[in-house]
Design a protein around this nucleic acid. Structure first.
Lengths: 148, 148
DNA sequence: ATCGCTGCAAAAATTTTGCAGGTAA
DNA sequence: TTACCTGCAAAATTTTTGCAGCGAT
């Protein structure tokens, strides 16, 4: 069941337009990566992207470069599950990519979370310490129903 | 100003006792690592630990092995600032190591945070999804007063 | 025709592991 | 003494980079 959730992903053409706005080209490998990400509900590591692409369709180094570019353009978001591997997810319309995950420590099942703590909590931390432009990374870990 | 904060670190002897309880030995390198961590207020990467130890006093591989051991025993806690380098901090008395950080994205200054969002927030997420033993990792990033 | 992009290979960086010898208990 | 531990070196991973050539616009 791809593309579930309340926030739909953009069509490939819209993503291509966003690339061109920044004088970046929509090449074959980038199309393949974006189209793969569009059909995912959870973040994928670069190696997983490589594995799911047709053989010889794209080089791993190209995926790394594409992800860094797309992250900079706000098209994908980087997540860190604490296992030393970066994972990437397409930013969905209506969000700014800000959401969190609940990850099973046994089977690595991932639940996409919509909610977050009240923004006052972050604002208070920022103000108390004189920090500006404060954001956060938050991930939950536990044992999923099947693994209990 | 080492050892600041409301929760004092344990004396080296107490840490040694905790090692022995688990049939682990208090060796020279481990003493050096623990004593160094005792005097830190912020997490240190393994390479930073190596650099701050007297030359030839300890091997980097030994530090990696020691940290993994100490983490398993609950003596140190691992933190992840999202830059691909693990950092470690001694667990202070009275806490179970649970706390968060506010990190400057410009100069990497670190503020230790005492507070956290209300536990009901996490409990609700756990219950909704049928997960058990849910914990979380949370770090804040922003621009510190000096870097603004 | 640019100039960006890709593939390949090599390099860099972090972390893990094998093994022979050393050492705490 | 007997495990456990360490140093060294090599390996395993993840990620980055150089470079020659290809390709989108």
């Amino acid at each position: 069941m791809p593309c579930s959730g309340p926030h739909p992903v953009e069509p490939l053409a819209a993503l291509a337009g966003r690339l061109r706005q920044h004088a970046c080209r929509l090449t074959g490998p980038r199309q393949a990566i974006l189209d793969l990400l569009r059909h995912q509900t959870h973040p994928l590591s670069n190696r997983e992207v490589l594995a799911q692409l047709p053989v010889g369709h794209c080089n791993l180094a190209t995926i790394y470069r594409a992800m860094r570019l797309l992250e900079g353009l706000g098209i994908v978001q980087r997540f860190d599950f604490g296992d030393g591997v970066a994972r990437f997810e397409l930013v969905r319309e209506g969000t700014r990519g800000h959401h969190h995950h609940l990850i099973c420590v046994r089977c690595a099942q991932v639940v996409e979370l919509e909610d977050c703590f009240p923004p006052e909590f972050e604002a208070r931390i920022a103000e108390r310490n004189g920090y500006k432009q404060v954001r956060h990374k938050l991930e939950f870990f536990g044992v999923c129903p099947q693994c209990q």
